[in-house]
Design a protein around this nucleic acid. Structure first.
Lengths: 193, 193
DNA sequence: TGAAAAGCGGAACCGCGTTCCGTATATTCC
DNA sequence: GGAATATACGGAACGCGGTTCCGCTTTTCA
């Protein structure tokens, strides 16, 4: 039957210029995020990529889509580091601590990402969905291992923990604040005494 | 010479309508903050108070001024509760925990306040100055007492701690988050083991 | 090569904070 | 009581940023 095959309905492949623009946008966004944070004005990013604002919306309907696209690799790396750390580390609690460190490293080096992570704006739904769906299970696994080993208090929800860690990383570069110290206190607080 | 004394320069007292407007604005802002959070649109607050937008800026040049004015009493109460708790509580650590609870209560019931607290926008300078200057010393006193009693790890900076607690309260009403649990972990993490 | 789909640019619109100035009014002095 | 004047008011106007929309260009495919 008029299949979904290549018969008559072969959908045209994406135009070359479109792909080029997408890549230019990704590069421009990455650069803009570094200098102006993830809230960099849409117009700036578009200008930097040499495209119109319409183009940015066509490729990345929401800001979250753009953020996800820019940081996908790093999030993947973080997610994959979880099981690895669990295998290498002396104890599950050590693995958990190291992994959280990795996560914190990721967040504090992206101006505004931590803020964006917790925005309840509908446009950031994608961000929640991706970041959390990808990282929460990893965190849960580490948490579970540590709890099973009797190292930490049981029953701590990974989603809540990650949410909290994310919050602690907001404004990590303000003078007079120390996100890592606070995260350290949380990790210490998890410990069973 | 035309002195600065009260001779001829008795400054006119504030006009009655001005005072009325200021109070109306305070009431309107308090109401708006409850329903829409501390980011309630300026125009809405002005309309609710039955004044023009210009009036709001004349009385409260920055949003922070308005927020401070609205919550001044509650901040004072929180600040004064510190020494009281220290006197009543079984241990300094218990007093610290209770006081932080009070602070968290205050923050989580004001939509957006925690976010605003950590904004580095210049307009929020007043908010930092007031809230932190008023509360950090209280926190420092409690922290110090607990450290002296050997209950918690020494050397934790009150400003950092309050900053962190504030951060943890961001989005306290989102489903799937539990600010109090996270704060509890931090307090537990302070404990010397 | 020519028609049609795909994509593009940027003008235009909206919401919100902020400023500014002509006008209204409370206060003061006679 | 009635001007004179400092004081305060209202809201139009401006700037900025996100978002939408549509006429035009470019690429693809036959």
């Amino acid at each position: 039957m008029a299949g979904t095959g290549s018969g008559s309905g072969a959908p045209r492949k994406q135009r070359a210029d479109s792909r080029r623009n997408e890549e230019a946008l990704l590069k421009a966004a990455a650069a803009a995020f570094v200098t102006s944070g993830v809230d960099a004005p849409v117009r700036d990013i578009a200008a930097m990529a040499g495209v119109g604002v319409g183009t940015i919306y066509r490729h990345f309907p929401t800001r979250a889509d753009l953020i996800v696209a820019v940081y996908r690799h790093q999030v993947e790396a973080c997610a994959e580091a979880g099981p690895a750390l669990l295998a290498e580390s002396a104890t599950p609690h050590a693995a958990l601590a190291s992994w959280i460190d990795l996560f914190v490293d990721f967040l504090v080096t992206k101006h505004g990402l931590a803020e964006a992570m917790r925005s309840d704006d509908a446009a950031f739904q994608t961000l929640h969905a991706y970041f959390l769906d990808r990282l929460v299970p990893v965190c849960a696994q580490l948490l579970d291992a540590a709890a099973t080993a009797g190292e930490i208090i049981p029953g701590v929800d990974a989603l809540v923990l990650m949410h909290g860690i994310g919050n602690l990383c907001i404004g990590a570069d303000s003078p007079g604040y120390d996100a890592r110290l606070m995260v350290g206190l949380v990790i210490a607080g998890l410990r069973l005494r």
